[in-house]
Amino acid sequence: MKTVPPPLDKPTAPTFRLPPLTCDCHVHVYGPTNRFPFAPERPYTSQDAPVERLEALHRLLGVERVVVVQATVHGLDNSAMLDAVARDAQRRRGVALLPPGTPIAELERLHRAGVRGVRFNFVRHLGGAPDLSAVQSLAQAIAPLGWHLQLHLDAQDLLSYRAFLDTLPVPFVIDHMGRTLVEDGPEQPALAQLLELLKNPRAWVKLSGPERISACLSRGSFPYADVLPHAQRLMAAAPDRVVWGTDWPHPNVREMPDDGWLVDLLPHYGGPQALHQLLVDNPTRLYWYD
């Protein structure tokens, strides 16, 4: 089984000051495994990355709200995610991994616990696409709660599943800028499809994972600078349907990023009003609507 490296012990303090109520809309917690064991069928393994380390990171970065996304290492047991959310129920929300046919009573219980979405992994290294009828069925079930779907896709999946995405009855969030690699160029079909998809008023995109799509990685004095045109085009296409996240503790990345660098990218994405939408207003609409 593949072992992924841990996040940096001492990330850099960012120079950019985040606005009040900034939300990190994509983090995971791992363990601690003596309380929350990893799933035996997990596609990778890691060291513990518990909520206490996440809280220390957010104090350093100036993040006040967070969305904890169920980690693949924990499978369908959402206990670690729910525990992290419960520690500050006013400022935290969760996104769950759920099996097909989850009863309405369980969805309502998770809603009371702070869950506001369900994630589906389509990427090949995490097992490939789920059954589309199950995705559609669960989307129908969560619609009355106001939840959304969060979709982790490979870039080529944006082409393969476009027609399906347009049938979804609830908002859906595309993770990590659609994993559209910078090296494939600004006119690549996947990025064009993602920009076209954002004409759908239910489509959102997460400006996370620049280290996943950068061609230059952290070389030079300005890490991930080549990602800026991607992010700027996505923000311009749907300024009211973009959110941001660090993706801490950064599973399955090509290099481990410094979270302070990720914050310092933000003022290059847009001006103060656009950043307030990205970091505060849009997350409030998506996760704190009730």
Score class of each variant (00 low, 15 high):
T3K: 09
P5A: 13
D9N: 14
D9V: 14
P11W: 10
T12H: 00
T12Q: 08
P14K: 08
T15L: 06
P19S: 06
C23K: 03
D24T: 07
C25K: 03
C25V: 09
C25G: 08
V27E: 10
V29M: 02
V29W: 03
T33I: 10
P40S: 11
E41N: 14
P50A: 11
V51D: 12
V51T: 12
E52G: 13
R53A: 15
H58Q: 13
R59Y: 02
V68F: 02
A71S: 15
A71K: 04
M81V: 05
M81G: 03
A86F: 09
R91S: 11
R92P: 01
R93F: 10
V95L: 10
A96Y: 09
L97E: 02
P103I: 08
I104H: 10
L107A: 07
L110I: 08
H111G: 11
A113M: 13
R116C: 12
V118N: 02
R119H: 09
R119N: 08
F120T: 07
F120C: 04
F122E: 06
H125Q: 13
D131N: 11
L132Q: 01
S133R: 09
V135E: 07
Q140T: 13
L145A: 05
H152S: 07
L153A: 00
D154I: 01
D157T: 03
L158R: 02
Y161S: 03
L165H: 02
L165I: 03
D166Q: 15
L168D: 05
L168I: 05
P169H: 04
P169M: 05
F172P: 02
I174K: 07
I174W: 02
G185I: 01
G185F: 02
E187R: 15
A192I: 11
Q193I: 03
L198F: 05
L198H: 09
R202A: 01
G209F: 00
R212F: 00
I213D: 02
S218F: 00
R219Y: 14
F222Q: 14
A225F: 08
D226I: 03
L228R: 14
P229A: 11
A231H: 11
A231E: 08
R233T: 08
A237D: 04
A238T: 00
P239T: 01
V242E: 01
V242S: 08
V243Y: 13
T246I: 07
D247A: 12
P249A: 05
H250A: 03
E255G: 06
M256N: 05
P257C: 08
G260R: 14
W261F: 14
W261S: 08
V263M: 00
D264R: 12
L266Y: 00
H268S: 15
G271E: 09
G271D: 12
Q273G: 09
N282M: 06
W288S: 11
